[in-house]
Write a protein that binds this DNA or RNA. Structure first.
Lengths: 219, 219
DNA sequence: TAGATTGTTAATCGATTAACAATC
DNA sequence: TAGATTGTTAATCGATTAACAATC
């Protein structure tokens, strides 16, 4: 009902809250205020309260939030109280790094299938995850579906990979290839473009020089 | 002047435009409309025109944009017409993958120093980039500064790493550690949290179940 | 000229934040 | 009770989009 309308920015922050609350919980603190959370992750305290109240009344006026309760609740909202099966496509350097990434396991994400076109990679890798030939992907995933697909293939085959994942019935895709993929509306898609992130930084770095050259250029 | 006020969302899209225009240019197309660009990267055409007009009048009414000119201009705006020196800290699996990531080189980013605490890693790695001991980072970077620092260390030492980078005079940081880092306002910081991206997807995946359990829970 | 597409305005939409009554 | 902090409203701010005059 109301949940469907959670702003995207709120969902991102909920994920940050859950991460932060896990950290706070480890320090054996039992209570936390919206101000503490806000300072901890660098946002406005009003945002924190608003975000949290979207999910129901979990705080106590004049007191704050119970760390464990709040953490459990946020984790439940994000769907992290159950395990998620993840399929990785493309076992290059980045794919390999992601397949062993501890941060995923800690949050309940289990990469349990890997697909690649390179026949020399087919078999079992160190991490214990089996590597299958990409041609068999649709069949294998139809037989035993995955929740999420991670695309780590070169950009030239990224759209075809996405199409295959969709065909296999996957409902969520995390894309690391630097292309804008087209997927049907019922499939959730997130893009992590590493170069784009660096380019935002260089924009900031070069504002001064740029301003000068722009002035020269446009008059 | 005006440039300082570019909305963040515009900067991100500019990066996507430059990527897309590079692709279009390779196909030997000389003209492109805002509608084509919009369809190519999945945004609204009015957004495209607005974003591009922030940077000066580069289109021709009734005709469109010259692909090469526009691409060059956007690239200049983003500061990608010059090379950027990048320092990578933390040579784990992810760091290793990033150090060989082709997408960086293609966009003019050169990772030319790597720091790590693990003495067995000190030396030269396959990619030809020299690996230095982390203790020497501030000294080495002060001697020969880098433009951007990439943090790929475990979260327990991420803030200390950021502090050291700031101390060494770096002005932009790309952080892959799952913590909210504190840096002075003059330092640009971007965070790439891989788990957060997956969690946004699981939120979408679990909306239905959640709605049910929430109703049961709050009444 | 007729058709196309830009650049820009104005309207809409959504997200952030300040402020404060409610209340522990 | 006095102090603290929530939950929520209303105000502000910023980003998106539709619409259209300008013009190639």
């Amino acid at each position: 009902m109301k949940l469907k309308k959670l702003p995207n920015s709120t969902i991102i922050r909920l994920s940050l809250y859950s991460r932060y609350l896990t950290e706070v919980d480890r320090k054996e603190l039992t209570l936390i205020s919206s101000l503490d959370i806000a300072k901890g992750i660098g946002v406005n305290p009003a945002s924190v309260r608003k975000d949290l109240s979207y999910c129901g009344d979990f705080g106590t006026k004049g007191v704050g939030y119970n760390v464990k309760d709040l953490r459990n609740h946020v984790i439940k909202i994000l769907g992290l109280n159950s395990e998620w099966n993840v399929t990785l496509v493309g076992l290059g350097n980045l794919g390999l790094a992601l397949s062993t990434y501890k941060g995923f396991q800690e949050r309940g994400f289990v990469i349990n299938r890997i697909f690649d076109t390179d026949s020399s990679k087919i078999g079992s890798i160190s991490n214990g995850i089996q590597v299958f030939p990409a041609e068999q992907m649709v069949d294998i995933l139809r037989e035993k579906p995955s929740d999420i697909g991670i695309i780590c293939v070169p950009m030239s085959v990224a759209q075809a990979t996405a199409d295959a994942l969709v065909k296999s019935g996957i409902k969520a895709i995390l894309n690391f290839a630097p292309v804008s993929l087209k997927v049907p509306p019922e499939v959730s898609l997130r893009n992590v473009d590493l170069a784009v992130n660096l380019e935002i930084l260089t924009f900031n770095l070069s504002i001064e020089e740029l301003t000068d050259s722009l002035i020269a250029r446009s008059f």
